[in-house]
Every structure is written in C-alpha cells, then in structure tokens.
Design a protein around this nucleic acid. Structure first.
Lengths: 219, 219
DNA sequence: CTCTTTATTATACGAACGTATAACAATGAG
DNA sequence: CTCATTGTTATACGTTCGTATAATAAAGAG
C-alpha cells in the first residue's frame, strides 16, 4: 500500500517581521501556559497556526527562537513599564508609588508570568545569548528605577551620592523582585492589595520617602 | 546475525533509603550543572552510577523523582540554615546579621543554585505535588526568619504586633530573596561583600535595628 | 498574463526520550 | 550450604523530539 501525498493546506503569506513576532509570541504563550518542557517546535508552530518547518525558515534553531522570544518579551515589558512612569503628571513621589503599585499588581504579577520568567532564568547561566539578554534587560530596568528614585529624592531635598543611590536602587529592586515573586507564586497567601501595601511601606523605609498615602483617589 | 547478550556488570546492593537519596542528589547535581532539559532518566542514572531501570524501581515516574529531589533539597537547605541560627551564642541582633550574611554568601548564593531553584519554580504552577513542596518549604523558611526577627526586636525593647511582624517578615524575606537572586545571577555586577552590605543596611532600615557593625571579627 | 521569488507546507530521518518487562545476582535468613 | 527475596541490569517498545530537504503555492514584477 503506497502512501498518498497529503492535500496541501492553503495559507496566507505574511510580512516576515510580523511572522517573526507571531512565532515569538506563540513561544511565550506556550511556555507561560504549559511550561518549558511542553514548548516543542511542534507545539509552538501549532500555537502560531503554522507548520513546524516554518520555524526553521525564520530561526536557525529552537534555541535561537526561545532567546529571541525572551528579548522580545523583555522589550515589551520595559516599554509598558516606562510608559507608565513617563507620564509627567503628579509629583515624583507619586510616580514612584505608582511604579510600585504597577510592579506588584496584575498583569505584571501572575502565576504564568513567574513560570515564564523562571523558564528563562534557568537558562541564563548556561547559554551566553540568554545571559546577554538578561544582563541588558536587567540593567535597563534598574536604570529606570534609579531615575524615578533620584527624582523622588531630589524632590524631598535629599541629594544622595551616586554610591548611595546605586545601593538604594539595588535594595529597592530586590524588595520589589522578591515581593513580585512571592505574590505571583503564592497569590493566596500574599494577595495583591496586601503586597502593594508592604511594597510601599518597604520602599518608604528604605528611602525615607513618604509613600503610604499617595494613592491618587481622584483619577 | 543474532545479537549476543551483553555481559552483566557487577554491582553492589545498597540500602534502599541510601539509594533513594543518591538518586535524588544525582538529580540535583544534573539539573544544577547542566539544566533541567538535560536531566533525562539516562543522564541522572549515569550520574548516580546505576542503570536507568533502577530509577523506576524507586520512583513511580521521573516526575516523582524530581519532586522528591526538590523536597529533599529544601529539607537540607532548611536544616543547614536553621543550624546556623540555633546557636545561642551572641545577641539576637547578631544572630539576625549572621543569618543575612549566610543567606547572601556562597554556598547559598551561586549560579548553579539559582539554576536549580528556577528549574523547580517553573513547575510549581503546573504540578500540584511541586506546589505543595514549595508552599511548605517556603512557610518553614518564613517562620524561621520571623522567629529571628521577633527575638531581635524584643531585644531592642520593641514589641511588634503580630500583623506588623508578619508584614515585616514578608518584606525582609523579599529583600533577601531579591538580593540572593541578583547576586547569584549577576555575580560580576553584585559581588558578595557588596550584596551583604546592602542586605544588612536594607534589613536595618526595614526593622529599625542596628545591624551594620555587628560583624563578629573574633571568631 | 507570465515569470521569478520565496514564504510555506509536506515528509523524512536519526537520536533521545520515558516507560515496561524479564532475566540475573547480591544479600540475608534458615 | 541452600534457598528465597529483591535490588539491579539488560533490553525492547513506541513516541516525540529537533532538524533537514524538496515540493508547492502565494504574491509581486514585468
């Protein structure tokens, strides 16, 4: 019994840049929802609505795709986060508080976000390209936090030295990272409003700035 | 050409409990050094010096083995950590400072440790057994930190309410988690002595306790 | 309309995976 | 010394993996 060739399914040609992004975002969705071990070439291409071979047309290897998806994800997150603190309305302290609230609330927190994040972190020690993406995205985030912190401190007539500011940024970054992680991984134990309160109070004590009653109740 | 049966290699019978532990620790070593995707049944059994079939004799599935290895790892870490703060020598504040130093120095920090940790975290949202291990080990760690914090605060004549203490524990836990992560993933940017200083200063500001010059210089 | 380009599909291949099963041998009991 | 127990090995099976290659069709140029 000879095998009859399969009927070829119809398809649309997409702009290469758009297709690349679709494939990267399909990768992120599969890892976030079903984990990194389920993120096979076949599962990702199926999620994107294409056949597995197409991935090899856009990416030299699966490793390349995952790394590009990581970089894409970080760029999108960075853009969304900086848009929030770019709005010049309100005082610098209020912008800092808003930054903290956003960092510790959905959609930044969430079980799927931490699953995605952990999948990438697991690779950075072993794959240089992943490590590079991590280094750059992490530095960008830290610089952004440092800018907001500096503005808030200057506003309060406190001019820190660069060493003080760098250390303070690391500390605030750490407490936000840690709270984000705990709240995302244990949403029942540490719900959103509780973790936001803890985050505001913690950064308040670390910086000496009054952040606790800055909520903009008249939006 | 018929295949000749392989010569059977000699072996030693081990006590079942010991063999179980060996297999779990081999799992941890493989994940820590080569990543979770390299941790196949064959790689793990090879690391343990046995043949793949033996894993099925001790564990119902690979998933079971990984989960047991996670629980084992957390138990060992917990035991090592609590041994450090159980020593009654020194004031409570000094014990808290020592706790922070240990948490932010090798061998607790390290690229392999964070790789191992991330591999487990990636699974807790999807596998109930892994989630359970995470919940319990995390609660244990937090209770231990809470105990040290309470003692240090009482020693400084500060008696916090339970709600205050719980929140403070979450905050200190978060900053230690975040600093541990940053220092482990970016050892070049945040070396050990720097991160220890930041950790001491941060917990000092969060709690109001004087931790900065508590180093026991005469060990 | 025809031709060229290339995005996309279909198919195939070897390797590695997790798991299952039966034979074997190390050990302790009697 | 003999036997039963079971820890351990050897082997096999079907599946899925990442990758490679050739055929095909959609889209734009002339």
């Amino acid at each position: 019994m000879t095998k009859a060739p399969e009927k070829r399914r119809s398809y649309r040609r997409e702009h290469p840049d758009k297709r690349r992004v679709e494939l990267m975002e399909a990768t992120l969705r599969v890892i976030a929802s079903r984990g990194v071990e389920a993120a096979s070439v076949r599962a990702i291409s199926s999620e994107a609505g294409v056949t597995p071979g197409l991935i090899r047309h856009y990416f030299a290897s699966k490793e390349d795709l995952v790394c590009a998806a990581y970089a894409h994800h970080m760029t999108v997150m960075q853009r969304a986060s900086s848009k929030a603190s770019d709005t010049e309305r309100g005082s610098a302290v209020e912008r800092l508080a808003e930054f903290i609230r956003r960092t510790l609330s959905p959609p930044v927190t969430g079980a799927q976000e931490v699953q995605l994040w952990a999948a990438f972190i697991e690779k950075i020690g072993r794959e240089p390209a992943m490590r590079q993406v991590h280094l750059e995205s992490y530095r960008d985030f830290r610089l952004q936090l440092e800018t907001v912190l500096r503005a808030a401190l200057l506003e309060a007539d406190h001019t820190p030295s660069q060493i003080e500011l760098t250390r303070l940024t690391f500390a605030c970054n750490a407490v936000l990272d840690g709270l984000w992680l705990e709240s995302s991984a244990l949403p029942d134990i540490l719900p959103t409003d509780e973790v936001v309160q803890i985050g505001l109070q913690s950064v308040s004590r670390l910086t000496g700035l009054p952040l606790l009653n800055t909520r903009n109740d008249t939006p």
